[in-house]
């Protein structure tokens, strides 16, 4: 039964990857990346049970934290369109 849940998560990962590839905007890709992160986290937990090694849960916890921080960090960069946007330098790199 863990295999069934794992398979469903893999299918979701695939669908999210297709959306990340299709785009069309950078926000769609980020949204897909967020979903990929959530799925990877759940997949880690399920794989831990599948292999009888619940230590994988620590990895899932760390992955979840990194996922959120990563999305916020990338958003801060893309808030103004591209990395070389003069709007960033004009107010001292502050993005708010």
């Amino acid at each position: 039964m863990f295999a069934a849940a794992g398979l469903a998560l893999l299918v979701t990962l695939l669908l999210a990857l297709v959306r990340a590839g299709l785009g069309p905007t950078v926000f769609d890709r980020l949204l897909a990346a967020n979903t990929v992160g959530t799925c990877a986290m759940l997949l880690l937990a399920v794989i831990g049970f599948l292999g009888g090694r619940p230590e994988f849960l620590d990895l899932a916890l760390v992955y979840g934290l990194l996922n959120v921080i990563g999305i916020i960090a990338v958003l801060k960069f893309f808030r103004h369109g591209d990395l070389g946007d003069p709007g960033d330098e004009a107010n001292g790199g502050e993005t708010r």
Binding site: F2, L15, R19, L31, T35
Partner: peptide, 21 residues
Amino acid sequence: LCAGGFFCVAGGLGLLRMPDF
């Protein structure tokens, strides 16, 4: 677990089917 997997796949399908961001 099966229900969770079902909702995950449904959400993934929605990610593909929905018209805008």
